[in-house]
Amino acid sequence: MSDFPGVRLHVVSGKGGTGKTTVAAALALALAGGGRRVLLAEVEGRQGIAQLFDCPPLGYDEREVAVAPHGGDVLAMAVEPEQALLEYLDMFYKLGRAGRALKKMGAIDFATTIAPGIADVLVTGKIKEAVIRREGGRPAYDAVVMDAPPTGRIARFLNVNSEVVGLARMGPIHSQAQSVMTLLASAHTAVHLVTLLEEMPVQETVDAVGQLTKAGLPVGAVIVNMTREPILPADALVAVAEGRLDTAELRRGLRAGGLPKSPSIEEGLVAEAVDHAQRVALEETERDELARVDRPTYELPLLEGGVDLGGLYRLAGALAAQGVR
């Protein structure tokens, strides 16, 4: 992102349902624009990315899912702790077939769930591997975008070091945690927070900024998703929110448009306008609240009827227009 020069790992979090997966995918597309190569990684095994790109379920292999505007590739994968552990064991202990036997016994599953932080270290470890991997004398990816866990868990998820160090005081998991932490806490990483202009997501965003900062993790942008243009004229909004809609003018307008006189329709229209204006006012309050965290902010429009592949490109375009590259 132009606001984030040097960032190689973009972590996308936010309250559940605010659009993390959608925004991560749009961000990957925007970053790939103009001939770059970007990896989009899912970490919670929910296959949200496959649904979005309308492709078969993702696996541990990195697979091309989209071509960016003006060339550029988005590859995607689903990082899974068991696979990451097997790969890791294989790298260090040359397990070969024994690895599969361990898996069949349920040992691998057990090892990844034996303590809460361990799966996180394995997953972030794999992400780090993709970030630093080199191919043909240059980085394999220009950027890696992670569709991360929600704000409620993000600081704990990324703060693998402190989470695991208390449990595994030595050994490879311990050193792995420390090496992952070096990347996550560096200027090569940015944690972006997706929010809506609603009370709870904004509250969680503000809280998450605090938690991440406290953990020494770099907060990137705030991405406000599903915004709507106010429809009422700006000069009328405040009055209408307070219930002072110019009903005489409304009646004149309705007559001018040839609509028959109907008190119930007029009352209904006024009520709808007041609803709308109050909602816009609430959104303004939430915008002010977000401004207090003082991070670069991007806005993405609400697409009526949801986000299909075309919609995803539109959102990527909106990010690009706001300077993401």
């Binding site: 009422l232 003018e249 307008g253 309705l254 609509l259 329709i265 209904g268 229209l269």
Partner: peptide, 30 residues
Amino acid sequence: TRAPGLSGSRSLAVAEMLTDSGASPLTAAV
């Protein structure tokens, strides 16, 4: 909807007409 007596399509048509004529931006928006 709070005004079920007025259909969406009718409403849009009138809004468009009012926008074109510039008669009442407020009504058009409503």
